[in-house]
C-alpha cells in the first residue's frame, strides 16, 4: 500500500468539467422525447428549456446519450412536435 501512495504525486480535490459526469444519464429515461420534424418550426423553446442542455440550438437534435426524459421539452413545445414515447427496454 505504502508504495502505491508514494507513487501518487499529489492528491487533489479538483473535479474536471466533462459531459456525463453522472454517466450516461440517458439510461435514466422512462419516456423518450421524439421530435416530428414536419411539425417543428424551429422556435427554440425546447432548446432554452432543456435543463440538461441536451437539445442542440442548430437543428434541434436531442442528445439521447444524456437526455433524462424529464418531458419539459414536449410539455412546452407550442406545436406539439415532441412526443414522449415509453422506452421499451430498461
Amino acid at each position: 500500500m505504502a508504495d502505491d501512495i508514494e507513487s501518487i504525486e499529489y492528491v487533489t480535490s479538483l473535479s474536471r468539467p466533462a459531459k456525463g459526469c453522472a454517466g450516461n444519464t440517458g439510461e435514466w429515461r422512462v419516456f423518450k422525447p421524439v421530435k416530428d420534424d414536419s411539425k417543428c418550426n424551429n422556435c427554440l423553446i425546447c432548446w432554452i428549456y432543456c435543463p440538461e442542455a441536451c437539445i442542440s440550438k442548430e437543428g434541434i437534435n436531442i442528445d439521447y446519450q444524456y437526455c433524462k426524459g424529464c418531458g419539459m421539452c414536449a410539455e412546452e413545445c407550442p406545436t406539439k412536435a415532441i412526443e414522449m414515447i415509453k422506452e421499451d427496454k430498461f
Binding site: 459526469c21 453522472a22 441536451c54 433524462k68 426524459g69 418531458g71
Partner: peptide, 10 residues
C-alpha cells in the same frame, strides 16, 4: 452547464 449531470429530472 454540461449534459449528463447528477441533477434530478426537470
Amino acid at each position: 452547464f454540461l449534459a449528463g449531470s447528477t441533477a434530478c429530472h426537470g
